[in-house]
Amino acid sequence: MALDIAFYLILAAILVSAFAAIHVRGHLNAVIILSVFSVLTTVKFTFLQAVDVAMAEAVIGAGLMTALFVTAISKTRKRTWRAR
């Protein structure tokens, strides 16, 4: 039963983090929230017995996509840090 409650809490957290990822100000914040969203999704998938999908979501959503997003964001900002 406690497991069920945890599952529903995670579902709520997924919705909240998805909403926040779109509405939060600042690109980097949004991407960090997006990776939190991915991690929560991973946990949800393990609850639903989808272990392979959970692993893929963890690696792609939280790992690879975050890296690509951060790189893209660093390329689309005005050159403050690039003055090397």
Binding site: A18, A21, I22, H27, A30, F37, L48, A50, E57, A72
Partner: peptide, 27 residues
């Protein structure tokens, strides 16, 4: 959204919603 990065984030969220639906259908 008007910002392209934000649109990319939205696309990513939309994609994962279909993954969630598939996994839910399998349960």
């Amino acid at each position: 959204q008007r910002d392209m990065i934000k649109i990319c984030i939205s696309i990513s969220i939309m994609d994962s919603s279909f993954v969630m639906a598939l996994v839910a259908a399998a349960y």
